[in-house]
Simulated scan of single mutants.
Amino acid sequence: MTVTDRHRATAWQVQSVLLSYPDELLLERVPLLRAATGTLPASLAGPLATFLGHVTATPLAGLAADYVATFDHRKRFSPYLTYFAYGDTRKRGMALLRFKHAYRAAGLRLDDSELPDHLAVVLEFAAAGNAETGVRLLTEHRAGLELMRLGLHETGSPWAAVLDSVSATLPPLNGRDHDAVARLAAEGPPEEEVGLAPFAPPEYMPDPEGARR
């Protein structure tokens, strides 16, 4: 089955829900998420179906604890896309503003409690009729996404399947992408540049330890 724009929008919406903090609402949505997944091509649906099976087989408390241990306590799995490119440096604030400007241009204003580069937020934005801009934001941070995906597989995390599905909605990795992933894996995100004034107001500087809930 050919992947269409409608397939990608549906997949992004499902992925967004599955990459948010798991709660009772997630369990209530499982039948709807399964139905939506069933409309997708195998490359997008297979990984999502695998993860939904894990959700139904795992007590909610265990699922939530695993989410926190994975995304809150391990920076290598940060769901905030700008972290991989900018680390905790001041330049990251400017990168966050680029996300906010992209959302505002599309008529979307986030709650102040939401950081605009959270993967679940970006996927939800892309699903809501903003595919072109959403793909641009995702591909600009493709190296970080791929490093996260590979790391989740390496540790046996069930969320690796969701990242597989995200990757399947994007253009194939090229040589430059592979080089960027290798470089990021070897060097890690940049460290703070001492002595530079902030590039953005402090409110746009994120707490990398927290994940979207």
Rank of each mutant, 00 (worst) to 15 (best):
T58M: 12
R142D: 02
H73V: 12
S20H: 01
A69T: 11
G87W: 00
M148C: 08
R6Y: 11
A127P: 01
P190T: 02
L138E: 02
A200E: 02
P190R: 00
P189D: 08
H54S: 03
N130F: 00
V181E: 04
A127D: 01
D23P: 05
A127F: 03
V122N: 02
L27A: 11
Q15W: 05
K75F: 13
A85K: 10
L96P: 02
E203P: 03
S20Y: 01
V3C: 05
D117C: 14
A128I: 05
K75R: 15
V17I: 04
T39H: 07
F77W: 09
A200L: 11
P198L: 12
V55H: 02
E209I: 14
G107R: 11
H118Y: 01
T82Q: 01
A42L: 04
L137A: 06
V68W: 06
T10F: 04
V181M: 07
K100G: 01
V121S: 02
D207N: 15
V135C: 13
F125P: 00
R29G: 02
G134I: 03
V14H: 05
A36G: 13
L184S: 12
N174I: 07
H101S: 07
A35I: 09
R74A: 09
T133V: 15
N174L: 06
A57D: 15
R142L: 10
P47W: 05
G156W: 14
A11R: 00
G62A: 13
H73N: 10
